[in-house]
Design a protein around this nucleic acid. Structure first.
Lengths: 135, 135
DNA sequence: ATACTTGCAAAGGCTTTGCACCCTA
DNA sequence: TAGGGTGCAAAGCCTTTGCAAGTAT
């Protein structure tokens, strides 16, 4: 079972303000990897008064609590997603910025093996493949 | 055989100014993944008058020419390295920012297979594993 | 009631760019 | 010489932060 973002925030003892509930809901409803600007835009649909600063503070807070994960796809801004989503990796189209999610069973094993070889712990690991779509 | 950065710049018809020669030399001599600030610092050892703006313009120019490759390790600034270095991947310590280079033959095959499956061309591909060192 | 949160606007860090001057080919 | 390059400082973007006012517990 997986608790909702809000439930996990509460479990972490975080204060549940109206703004945090909204940001949590927005990310709960997102299947993509929204940046702060996008999250803010979606949050404004619930409460037009919410500020970008609060969105920044909330996602950072949730990240520290292990509720969200920050992604960097090379376009200079952070993307966010629920840390409890099923593990998957990303393929980024360096020309269009498009993000493809995929799962490959071998990658799981490979990542562990490499981390092991190098003495690293890949909890919360990610794989990023950068490429361009074939014509 | 692999031409020097400077030789490749010349081959691309780029104008070889004093500043570009220096930036090329600095990167030729670098075994790490310097950011612009670091490149500028090293360049100043050759010519204290070189400006950061020129370093930015030069690395971007060299990237467009396929001479250098830009890396993003999640710390908000770009790192640069010779595009002709032997292919390798990176493991980034998310706590210290340390960058480990490594090569794994299976990754080569895996990357190709995944790219193939997804219809992508991974020329100039990269793998980034994010983790923290085991205690 | 108190400690924490928010909005606003200013500031920070990295990168790009306009402009006048300078230099390579 | 002519077209491109450089330095400087200003501006752009994304993100963080100081402060006064507001709010969850």
């Amino acid at each position: 079972m997986t608790l909702s973002i809000l439930a996990r925030a509460e479990a972490h003892g975080l204060r549940l303000t109206g703004q945090r509930r909204i940001v949590a809901q927005v990310l709960e409803d997102s299947d993509d990897h929204p940046d702060v600007e996008t999250i803010h835009l979606r949050a404004c649909a619930h409460d037009p008064a919410i500020s970008v600063a609060t969105v920044y503070r909330t996602v950072n807070l949730f990240e520290e609590a292990g509720i969200l994960e920050r992604r960097e796809f090379g376009d200079g801004r952070a993307r966010w997603e629920d840390a409890e989503r099923d593990h998957h990796d990303h393929l980024i189209d360096m020309q269009t910025g498009e993000v493809i999610e995929f799962v490959d069973p071998e990658i799981e094993a490979l990542q562990e093996r490499i981390a092991d070889r190098l003495g690293y712990d890949l909890k919360g690991h990610r794989l990023e493949l950068f490429g361009v779509k074939r014509k």
